[in-house]
């Protein structure tokens, strides 16, 4: 069954006729060709597909595109400034070597940005707990945690 779906992605209105079974992540990757959002599992655990829906981190592999009807979606491609300047959380990941192969990174950063916006002074332990929906196989999380603690402070400071 074909349905029409409309939403805003990275500030731009988009709409398309898709099969009803289209996942939000498929819509983002295949229809919009925004391939920064990744798929690393099929059981909603790795979090590589994390995007923001109306300002909250969600797993785009675990919802239909239709569930985002009318929503404001932000993907990793929409995070840096238009001139290419990195978002403070992205900059913190770079500064603290919070990424290696880069595959989990977009999901990590998107979850981190949402978390930091709500918990500007989180401790390392709180950050670790907030990453319960994101898997990384490269970093052992050590530097991701450092990045998020620093990125949270930078975000608070940039306000």
């Amino acid at each position: 069954m074909a349905v029409k779906v409309s939403m805003k992605v990275n500030g731009k209105p988009v709409s398309a006729d898709v099969e009803a079974r289209t996942l939000l992540v498929t819509f983002i990757r295949e229809h919009l060709r925004l391939t920064g959002t990744h798929v690393g599992c099929d059981t909603a655990q790795c979090g590589a597909c994390t995007v923001h829906m109306n300002g909250k981190a969600v797993k785009s592999c675990s919802m239909l595109a239709m569930q985002a009807e009318g929503a404001d979606i932000l993907t990793i491609e929409g995070l840096a400034k238009a001139d290419g300047t990195l978002h403070p959380m992205q900059a913190a990941f770079k500064e603290h070597h919070g990424l290696q192969c880069g595959f989990c990174t977009p999901g990590m950063v998107m979850n981190a940005v949402d978390f930091a916006a709500r918990h500007p002074n989180a401790s390392e332990q709180e950050v670790r707990e907030a990453l319960d929906g994101n898997l990384c196989r490269c970093t052992g999380y050590h530097n991701i945690v450092k990045s998020i603690v620093a990125g949270s402070k930078a975000m608070a400071g940039a306000k």
């Binding site: 969600v58 675990s62 979850n111 949402d114």
Partner: peptide
């Protein structure tokens, strides 16, 4: 329940 992202949905 679940994880942060799951709890948002």
């Amino acid at each position: 329940i679940g994880d942060r992202q799951v709890r948002n949905m």
